[in-house]
């Protein structure tokens, strides 16, 4: 019984805060646009009884989902988001791995401080940090001023409102999510394994590729999911740093809701996004489980 209560709490939490809202969104995605408040129809009216409920059900359809396949804006946005998320993930690995490696190899007494520094940005609002990137990357921004003052460039670079700015923003924001799992994996790595590899004829470099990299794989995979999943639906970064050409599904979703006020189509976009995200989330869970098993 106690066991049941323990399990029931998280399930009740998920039910109330995830499943119920999802069902509501799903229902809206099956509805039609209407000039009303709320801006869709039908609405469930329980006072009309069973017949009313059947009537309500008969008005729901998959029109909006079909619409998503007809206008190429949507699938292009999904694809472009996936591409941006994938490239950002790779960039975060490239930037994050050396940082995590350096942290794990740093003297033990420094490591806590270095970890603190990685987490430190979370102490200020995410929004403010992204805004400050606008100040850095804009044409009169600090970066251009600095580069021009040391004479590397004569014309200011156009970075803000391009995909490059989006990548910079995403890598910057999600870097800690990549560093922390890789660091956790590298920190556990026993130095004597590298010595054993060298003893058996490896150079330092090949010991890194044959031992360090495979043993930090789980950390890299975990970090990649932690970056890829939220980046796919990212809205704030592309809308603040990206330009008109930056196509991301989060932005499309926002526009459908707030500019077009087309809640049913927006809901359909959200439902599809969720379905797309379920695949990497399941893969992520599998990876975590595999790692737990491997650690026995």
């Amino acid at each position: 019984m106690r066991r049941f209560t323990l399990i029931a709490i998280p399930y009740a939490w998920l039910l109330a805060l995830f499943l119920v809202p999802f069902l509501i969104v799903f229902k809206i995605s099956l509805s039609d646009l209407a000039m009303a408040i709320p801006p869709y129809t039908p609405n469930l009216d329980l006072s009309t009884g069973w017949a009313g409920f059947k009537d309500f059900l008969s008005q729901l359809d998959f029109e909006n989902f079909i619409w998503l396949t007809q206008d190429d804006l949507y699938w292009k946005a999904y694809l472009s988001s996936a591409k941006i998320a994938a490239i950002s993930t790779i960039l975060t690995i490239i930037v994050g791995f050396p940082i995590a490696y350096g942290m794990a190899r740093a003297p033990e007494e420094w490591r806590a401080t270095l970890l603190m520094l990685v987490i430190l940005p979370f102490w200020t609002s995410f929004l403010i940090r992204v805004y400050s990137w606008m100040g850095i990357l804009s044409q009169e921004g600090y970066l251009n001023q600095f580069l021009m003052s040391i004479g590397v460039i004569s014309e200011p670079l156009i970075i803000l409102n391009t995909n490059i700015a989006v990548y910079i923003g995403i890598v910057y924001t999600y870097l800690p999510f990549m560093i922390l799992p890789i660091y956790a994996a590298l920190e556990k790595l026993d130095e004597s394994l590298l010595e054993a590899a060298e003893d058996l004829g490896c150079s330092r470099m090949s010991a890194f590729w044959l031992i360090t990299v495979p043993l930090s794989k789980q950390g890299v995979i975990a970090g990649s999911f932690l970056v890829f999943i939220p980046t796919l639906g990212e809205f704030v970064i592309p809308s603040l740093l990206g330009g008109s050409k930056t196509l991301m599904i989060g932005k499309v979703l926002w526009e459908e809701f707030f500019s077009n006020r087309d809640w049913p189509v927006a809901s359909a976009v959200a439902v599809v996004l969720l379905l797309i995200l379920i695949i990497p989330i399941i893969l992520f869970q599998r990876n975590e489980q595999k790692q737990r098993e491997a650690e026995g």
């Binding site: 026993d190 394994l193 010595e195 054993a196 043993l215």
Partner: peptide, 11 residues
């Protein structure tokens, strides 16, 4: 060398 801690490659 055979290590006192074995140092086997876990992967």
């Amino acid at each position: 060398m055979m290590f006192q801690s074995y140092a086997l490659f876990p992967h």
